[in-house]
Computed example of a mutant assay.
Amino acid sequence: MSDQHSTLRAQRRADTQRMIQAHAVRLFGERGYDATTVADVADAAGVSPMTVYRHFPTKEDLVLIDRHGRIVAERIAASPAAQPLVRRISRALIESAAMVTDGDRGDGPTAAEQFLLARLQLMITTPALRAKHLDNHYALQQAIVEALASDAADPDATFHAQAAAGACLAAMHTALVRWAEDDGRTALPDLIAKALAAAFGDAVVGPDA
């Protein structure tokens, strides 16, 4: 029973976090990031400012916190260790993008894509968010290196993993900026795959044999 209660609490926490973040991104888009306070977000979400801070320690986190890094790390950890590093990372980035945007977009962008697009556009256009976004980029790189299970006692292996992760993330960043500037007209996983293929070749990011 305790495990069930713990799962339910975690689900309620995740639901509350998503609800607060949705209101925050909406308000930032309507009023501007600098003109919107955490109190404004709390009022719109129907919670106290303290509740907002429990889920998002800083105002920047209201835009930047997501589940992308965890999904990428999980996909890499589940990939065949014998594959080249760049292929493992590239496939994980493409697959995680499909998961966070709900995959099939039908006749247009999914609701998840529209939400991610609004967040990305805020990151690109808001000076206060750009520096923090770079911190998140570095954290994702470190998560990827750890998921690759690089031998910490082998500096060369760690260096190779860091270089591969950095190169793949640079290609993904180019795709994200293009996607945001183009108002999400292209499916994000396809655009990331295109950027990675331009950097490393089609064979690296193509489907598994």
Rank of each mutant, 00 (worst) to 15 (best):
D135P: 03
I144S: 01
H133C: 11
Q121G: 10
A98I: 03
P57I: 09
P84T: 04
H55C: 11
E113C: 10
A139K: 12
F159N: 09
A92W: 00
D43S: 14
E74H: 09
Q121T: 14
P127R: 05
L64F: 05
D151C: 12
A92L: 03
V63R: 00
L169T: 04
M99E: 14
C168R: 01
S48H: 11
A81T: 00
H68M: 09
A112K: 11
G166I: 06
A143G: 05
A81H: 01
L120Q: 11
V52Y: 02
A44V: 12
I65N: 03
S79C: 05
H68V: 12
R70Q: 10
G69H: 12
R88F: 00
T110M: 09
P127K: 09
L64V: 10
L134W: 06
Q141V: 09
R70A: 15
L93F: 03
L62G: 01
L62W: 00
E95I: 05
M99R: 08
K59D: 05
G69W: 10
E74V: 10
A164V: 03
L117N: 08
L85H: 01
Q114I: 12
D66E: 13
D43L: 14
R105S: 15
Y53H: 13
T51Q: 12
A81K: 00
L122E: 05
L148M: 11
L122F: 08
E74Q: 15
A44F: 04
V41C: 03
P155S: 14
A128M: 07
P155Y: 04
T126L: 08
L93W: 00
A118D: 13
I94M: 02
V41K: 01
A161Y: 02
I94T: 02
N136K: 07
A161L: 06
G69L: 06
T51M: 08
R67S: 15
S90M: 03
M123G: 07
A157Q: 08
K132E: 14
R87W: 01
A165Q: 02
H68S: 06
F159M: 11
L129S: 03
S90A: 15
E146V: 10
A149W: 03
A112N: 05
A147K: 02
G108K: 04
V47L: 09
I71T: 12
T58N: 04
V38M: 12
